[in-house]
């Protein structure tokens, strides 16, 4: 290193220069890619919601969404109504699927009345109610789209995560886990019980759909607990909506 690089003034000039160059490079790239990335996120949400409803291209054991080019039209076709529940009031909003659940949860923590989106879809004569939920896994956030019928029996679910461990917590996205939820009852004798991701369920083919339990994933205890907690605390909020559905 030549003497010149040791002087304080050089160091300062260099740092400032570096910060400016790196800062502007990253800011430029971030804003340049933002529209594309946001679009990808939007499409993904649509794909996830349709997936939970059963509108997907699943083969053998894979998770395959409707392709990006047709997702827009499929979304309008299958999703008939998008509701937003706030406080006691229900309103319609066809951009409801874009609501950021993370922000809503923060609002709720601050004591505000948060929004609860609910997407209503129709397929083969059946009505699906899809709710977006969010929770905490081991490392970072986990979220899901849960499709239910009017009795809060799960018709399909899609789970995702930000940073769970590959091969362990990340396996909540795999068919064998998500498929377990289909047919599971959230209610028990009219009471909301949620679903427990449990190590003692011992029902690998998930034949018992009324036990409010599914098998846990080996090595992914905390992620599994996160899923249970997420389902319990989030879906509980929709119980009054479904109760009202029944009485109307």
């Amino acid at each position: 290193m030549s003497k010149k690089t040791d002087s304080n003034s050089y160091t300062i000039i260099f740092s400032v220069g570096m910060v400016l160059i790196v800062g502007s490079l990253l800011a430029f790239l971030a804003s340049y890619f933002k529209p594309t990335i946001d679009e990808n996120k939007r499409i993904e949400k649509q794909q996830n919601i349709l997936y939970a409803m059963g509108v997907n291209e699943n083969e053998e054991g894979s998770v395959t969404f409707i392709s990006k080019d047709v997702v827009g039209e499929n979304f309008s076709k299958y999703i008939t109504k998008q509701l937003v529940i706030q406080g006691g009031a229900i309103s319609e909003n066809d951009q409801a699927y874009l609501i950021d659940i993370k922000k809503q949860q923060t609002l709720a923590k601050e004591g505000e009345d948060r929004l609860f989106p609910l997407f209503i879809g129709e397929k083969d004569g059946k009505t699906f109610y899809v709710a977006p939920i969010r929770g905490k896994g081991l490392w970072d956030a986990i979220w899901a789209y849960v499709a239910m019928d009017e009795n809060m029996v799960i018709q399909g679910a899609y789970f995702d995560h930000k940073g769970e461990t590959a091969g362990l917590g990340a396996n909540i996205k795999l068919r064998f886990f998500m498929d377990d939820f289909t047919g599971e009852h959230l209610l028990s004798d009219g009471q909301f019980k949620g679903i427990d991701v449990s190590k003692s369920n011992n029902d690998p083919k998930n034949e018992d759909k009324m036990d409010n339990q599914v098998d846990a994933i080996a090595g992914a205890t905390i992620t599994g607990d996160g899923v249970s907690a997420m389902i319990k605390s989030e879906l509980r909020n929709y119980v009054s909506y479904f109760k009202n559905l029944k009485t109307n």
Binding site: T5, D6, F14, V22
Partner: peptide, 25 residues
């Protein structure tokens, strides 16, 4: 040859971080 010796480590970190962020974006 142009990295000031005092902030060597920081500069290296920044280079790595920038590369990784670019890959991510």
């Amino acid at each position: 040859n142009i990295i000031p010796s005092k902030i060597r480590i920081i500069v290296q970190l920044i280079v790595v971080a920038t590369l990784v962020i670019i890959v991510d974006l």
